[in-house]
Amino acid sequence: MNIVVVIKQTFDTEAKIVLKDGQIDPSGVSLVINPYDEFAIEEALRIQKKFGGEVTVVSCGGPRSQEAIRTALAMGCDKGVQIDETALESVDEYVRAEVLAKAISEMPYDIILGGRIAVDDRSSQVAVRLAEALNIPSVSSVVKLDIENNIATATREIDGGTEIIEVPLPAMITAQKGLNEPRYPTMPGIMKARKKELKVINPADLGVSDLSAKMKVQNYSLPTPRQGGKKIEGEPAEAARELARLLREEAKVL
């Protein structure tokens, strides 16, 4: 079974976000594989163990995204593909999905896995757009996945319960927390990763007809810092009255 995993490199979840000239400043920030994509990698390796085949990890990103691809290779994926975003004028979910679809359509695949959401922009769009572009079914937020006779049975979380969906392969599956426990790259795995193939693709060479972003970010802003608490002085009864007044008139929660 040929398995493709689409991953994104994101900020470490504990990284401090700094805005510089209105843009998010990535300098000095440690980057990681998007945690939900790690579930996808782990699932891919488990499917491979069961059915054989090759796991190819594909990422759309700048030069540093190669670190994320190498880590996936160290975890056990066989081949890596980086679609070099630096060659693009502007990038959005549409552009990413289009270039990914084009690149993946040229490789053999029976199943595509990805994270259900990227922890940075939280758009949850690329995977489903990719499925649409490839004209294959997709199931999102999967917590359990079984494959038999070319049919994937995916359990997904829905409001207040779970839903079980059967789809024929090839299909796109996005991983939710709980699907599995991602492995650590082993030391020999890290050594082997260096020797594995990591192909860099220039998106311009893919022959996508329209590479212009459909969405433009107007503005980034940081959450307003938390204000200090307010202490209400005075007698208890009087203070309680004042609290009720403030909750109603200032906080507007009553």
Partner: peptide, 15 residues
């Protein structure tokens, strides 16, 4: 090196 960085990340994560 890239490998040493991966070793550090992995060991930190493991610990």
């Amino acid at each position: 090196t890239e490998e040493q960085q991966m070793v550090q990340d992995m060991a930190r994560n493991f610990a």
